[in-house]
Design a protein around this nucleic acid. Structure first.
Lengths: 123, 123
DNA sequence: ACAATATTTCAACGAACATTGAAACGATGA
DNA sequence: TCATCGTTTCAATGTTCGTTGAAATATTGT
């Protein structure tokens, strides 16, 4: 991932409204949400939400699909994970062992470990 | 992690200079770097670098320690991982299976898997 | 075609950010 | 203590961001 891409994503997540909108869409998963419902959920003016969704879409963090008279937005999970990889790869490169130890404390890694653990330990 | 904390961090990483500085410090690991060396490495005016380091420090992404007449900066790796956990926990909560599949494709998770794999498989 | 609905675009205003150079601060060594 | 070095602070400037309300666009149902 290029620096410019990463800064664009970070900028898109640097607003409270945009971060809440993105996390809301992450929670909805593949179903996504239409603009009006997002605006209602966040209690934000449609005009302002559109501004923020456009910023998220420009950064690639959400996708939009026309659905009748609605616009359905979805979180771009793969890109989110690319961003995480971008941040962590340098850490791992430097001192993999300590980075892994720290990652083990994160909730998502915990999920990963739980998914892998059964193969390593029966207890 | 609170939304406000996360947006503060994202904002701190939304500038090219700050992202480069942070990644540089991540690469240096526990050794960190003094301000002047960071300025040289990035070819940035000391005054401007100070502005950006202050922003990173305010967000908690770097720590600073006086060392004689130098100021030594270090990346706050644990906070970076907390941020990753903040982003990924919602994803995992919704549909753990697909989130794990996607995580497996990320470079750092690859490192994690490599670290765990030997316990699970001798090949 | 017309009206209603969903959403975006636009202009304008105020607020916040980034760069610059000069000045100030604090630590060091002669 | 004096000069020097490393770094930060400050003020000024130009740029970018966020909200608002009105207008425009696009889709649907009558």
């Amino acid at each position: 991932m290029e620096t410019r891409t990463a800064t664009s994503i970070f900028e898109s997540l640097s607003s409270g409204w945009r971060l809440e909108a993105f996390r809301l869409l992450v929670r909805q998963g593949p179903d996504g949400m239409v603009a009006g419902d997002i605006a209602s959920a966040l209690d934000l003016a449609p005009s302002s939400l559109s501004f923020h969704l456009k910023a998220l879409a420009h950064a690639g963090m959400v996708t939009v699909e026309q659905e009748g008279r609605f616009q359905r937005y979805r979180a771009n999970i793969p890109l989110m994970l690319e961003l995480i990889a971008y941040l962590t790869e340098e850490c791992c490169a430097g001192n993999p062992a300590s980075c892994i130890d720290l990652l083990a404390a994160s909730s998502c890694s915990t999920e990963v470990v739980k998914a892998i653990a059964p193969k390593t330990d029966k207890s």
